[in-house]
Amino acid sequence: MEAAIAIKGLRKNYGAKEVLKGIDLEVSPGQIIGYIGPNGAGKSTTVKILTGIIQDYEGSVQVNGLDLRTQLLEVKKQIGYIPELAEIYDLLTPREYLMFVGRLHHLEDAVTELRATRMLDSFGLLPNMDQRMDSFSKGMKQKVLLTSGLLHNPSIVIMDEPLSGLDANAVILVKELLQVLKSEGKTIFYCSHMMDVVEKVSDRIVLINQGAIVANSTIADLRAAGSDSLEQIFARLTATENTNQRVSDIAAAMQQANSTASHE
């Protein structure tokens, strides 16, 4: 079967700094991939490349058999992107913003209206549909972004910390939504730091560290290597030093700061 996402030798530099050092990855259709890694590992860069926001990279990326470099628009049509802590034109209402996004996706206004209304209703945002988003909480804005990413019924959904700011009920809703999307054959590229969620929803975990993939396997296979939770696997594969030692160092540093201040 053709891979939904096929990445080969993906490299990206910011000046002298190499952020991605040759990523090779294949994602099958209908899979949920948990893409995890420590801060600065290159997760967001990968996502920005996949969504066409960054276009100068080395290597090849294919999405549903389409080449990202030469068939960018076709790729974008098939991808729904839900960014992390995204900026949004918050002087607009959700209805207006979604209408704007729908038009950029060439959706009929009536279709956008119908889909947006139903989705926002499910997120419990219907009463707020005609209110400006400048008074919205982070979670409310995140729900609008989730809706905007799914509005055009994409076959691949790329989520960068989609649960950021959501309350417990909304988190449950999104987790179940992921399963529904999966059952409809959609591929989900799920980027997050919330290990417990990633562990529960992902078919496969891809762990990236310092721009390279250090693990790519099912959670069961990773467990077989000897650790219990994904959090521990993560720590083992990415931490450079002992965490306990770091905690003691931080506590000691705080003490030191206090005593220095008291000497002055």
Binding site: T51, G52, I53, L73, E74, K76, K77, I79, Y81, P83, A86, E87, I88, Y89, D90, F100, V101, L104, H105, H106, S148
Partner: peptide
């Protein structure tokens, strides 16, 4: 111009052939 100029990421994630029509 806008203080929320970063919200313009949305154009780049959309399947726009070219930005001219917008």
């Amino acid at each position: 111009m806008s203080d929320q100029y970063k919200a313009a990421w949305v154009y780049f994630a959309m399947p726009l052939q070219q930005p001219g029509p917008v």
